[in-house]
């Protein structure tokens, strides 16, 4: 039996993998938010009872969104190889993982956002309509601002989900914490690495979740913050 990996090496493994995970998840979350929120807004605008109801557009958009959401991430990872190469100029490594992560998360964010926006009460929206506000203003000042706490929480949920998905990044050499746990820990029977990674992931996700919950609460002006 080999002697256990020294803690100093475990730490440097964890440090590097954490950097990779945060990079992959961070960038893909930003992209998924920037593109997913408009998708959610568009879904809600075109929905029945929305500001710009349009059944045909809504159906198509819903279909594409749900298709994207039902795609297993591992399939997306492999299927998007050529697209990834086109965008980032290569198909392996952390940067290459960002493409499928972001693509997978856009419909996820879109649906979450639509559900949240649909919760804004119709009287509140109509009151804004009667002030002569443009659709853009209503989206910004009413739909999004009124739901901001819930939206921030939804982004938090997305980050946690993407950390999970990114564990499969190893398939295309993306590295990260999941990859560390599987390849260095599980496959090489290195319990110290496996369990330190698991413990660190638990800490990391908890801290991230807490951060988003705090931010959501800070943005909430309602007395009973229940999001």
């Amino acid at each position: 039996m080999r002697s256990a990996t020294p803690w100093s090496d475990v730490f440097s493994f964890l440090l590097e993998a954490t950097g990779e995970t945060l990079y992959m998840v961070g960038v893909s979350t930003v992209i998924a938010t920037v593109l997913g929120v408009p998708v959610g807004v568009w879904l809600q605008l075109t929905a029945k009872g929305g500001l710009r109801p349009n059944t045909a557009v809504h159906r198509i958009l819903s279909f594409v969104t749900d298709l994207g959401r039902s795609m297993p991430f591992i399939v997306l990872l492999v299927a998007l190889t050529s697209v990834t190469r086109l965008i980032v100029g290569g198909s392996i490594g952390s940067t290459a993982v960002i493409v499928p992560l972001a693509v997978g998360a856009i419909p996820f964010v879109g649906r979450l956002v639509q559900n949240i926006l649909s919760e804004v009460h119709v009287t509140v929206v109509e009151a804004a309509i009667t002030t002569g506000a443009s659709t853009l203003r209503i989206v910004r000042s009413v739909l999004i601002r009124e739901s901001l706490p819930a939206l921030i929480n939804a982004i938090g949920v997305t980050v946690i989900a993407l950390i999970g998905y990114s564990a499969m990044a190893g398939v295309i050499g993306g590295g990260g914490l999941g990859d560390l746990a599987i390849r260095e820990g599980y496959q090489r029977f290195n319990d110290r690495i496996l369990w330190s990674t698991v413990a660190w992931l638990a800490v990391l996700t908890t801290v991230i979740q807490l951060g988003f919950t705090r931010a959501a609460r800070a943005s909430d002006r309602r007395r009973h913050a229940s999001v």
Partner: peptide, 28 residues
């Protein structure tokens, strides 16, 4: 804008102050 409306039921933006709510038509 020529027609002020007080809708039936709660219609204020809960994330804006009283002053912020009154300002909405002026922003529009």
């Amino acid at each position: 804008r020529q027609i002020g409306v007080v809708p039936q039921g709660d219609s204020l933006l809960r994330q804006r102050t009283a002053a912020g709510n009154i300002a909405l038509p002026l922003e529009s």
